[in-house]
Amino acid sequence: MNQPLAYIHPEAKIARNVVIEPFASISKNVVIEEGTWIGSNVTIMEGARIGKNVKIFPGAVVSAIPQDKKFGGEDTTLEIGDNTVIRECVTLNRGTDATNKTVIGSDTLIMAYTHVAHDCIVGNNCILVNAVQLAGHVTIEDWAIIGGAAAVHQFVNIGAHTMVSGGSLVRKDVPPFTKVGREPLSYAGINSVGLRRRGFSNEKITEIQEIYRYIFLRGLNNSKALDLVELEMQPTKERDEIINFFRGSDRGVMKGYNAR
């Protein structure tokens, strides 16, 4: 590989068919797999593990040290899965010794000016729209879409197949299959359009809607609503995923619109 206008540390491990544009900078302890494209003025720092066919656009900074005063220089990583796209001026920080890594999944799109802080996990097939800001230790599950300029509090979990409105302040966990918006952030229905696009049947969508009627629209507290869901609805993968999300929440789940 001959990139006279890029800086590539001799200890970086880069597949033969990776394309690196002029003025990119790649540090030691970096792994970049086949088919990846690194745009001009991209900075890839120590600890980056970049998969196959990834595209990283100009101005992005990948695997910078955490913006965490407790960080002591420990050996941690930033992992990016295959076929993911990182747009202009995105900043992705590597992990701390809390988890040792930050992870971005495969087939995910992270749009311009987004920030993903230390120890975050972003799943597969996610979209983070322009200027989304994730604090540390945030988890976003597969197929979630986070609208532009949304800000997510540290340690928040966002469930699979969710859609979060642009400009949202996400202070509490967001359960799977939902649409959320307003201020304070609250339930706005289930993500039925997204679910249909991903092959969920009408019967399955109706089942998910009924579960959330118990939780958010009957005036019950979460504990009582979940008990009734278990008692009155047949066990399914989706039912159990929703129940387990609520019962496993440490920060607490955002409220239903009518609960305010």
Rank of each mutant, 00 (worst) to 15 (best):
V170S: 09
E21Y: 15
V103L: 01
I26G: 07
G166I: 08
R196C: 11
I243L: 03
L109E: 04
E241W: 00
I242Q: 02
S25I: 15
S192E: 12
C89H: 09
Q133T: 11
V19W: 02
T84C: 00
G167M: 11
H115A: 04
A112H: 04
A144S: 15
Q209T: 02
K204D: 14
T76F: 06
I145G: 07
A149W: 14
Y187H: 03
R16G: 15
K69A: 11
M233T: 03
K13P: 14
G72C: 12
R260I: 15
N17D: 15
P184Q: 06
G159K: 00
Y212R: 01
H137L: 08
E183T: 15
G248S: 14
P66D: 10
S249Y: 08
D75N: 12
I121C: 03
I146P: 06
K101F: 05
E210D: 09
A188R: 07
D250M: 13
G81Y: 02
R251G: 14
K179V: 12
L169W: 13
R247W: 11
V174N: 04
K69G: 00
A48K: 08
G194F: 13
V180L: 13
V193W: 12
V61R: 06
N191A: 06
S168G: 12
I20F: 09
I38H: 02
G81F: 01
E203H: 02
L169M: 14
I110G: 00
G189S: 00
A98E: 04
H115Y: 08
P10L: 10
I121L: 05
V229W: 00
R16Q: 14
P184G: 07
N83Q: 06
C126T: 09
L92I: 14
R87N: 11
G248D: 13
D173V: 07
V180C: 11
R171C: 08
I110N: 00
I242D: 00
R260V: 15
V129M: 06
E183C: 11
G148E: 05
H118T: 06
H115N: 03
D75I: 14
A12S: 13
N157F: 02
P176H: 05
S168Q: 07
M254P: 15
S27L: 05
Q3T: 15
G252D: 09
A150R: 02
H115E: 01
Q209E: 11
M233I: 05
A160N: 10
G95M: 08
K13I: 07
T114W: 00
I26V: 10
K179F: 05
A64M: 04
H9C: 14
M233G: 00
G167H: 11
D240A: 05
F177R: 04
S201R: 01
I38C: 02
F246C: 07
R218H: 10
A144R: 11
S201P: 08
R16H: 14
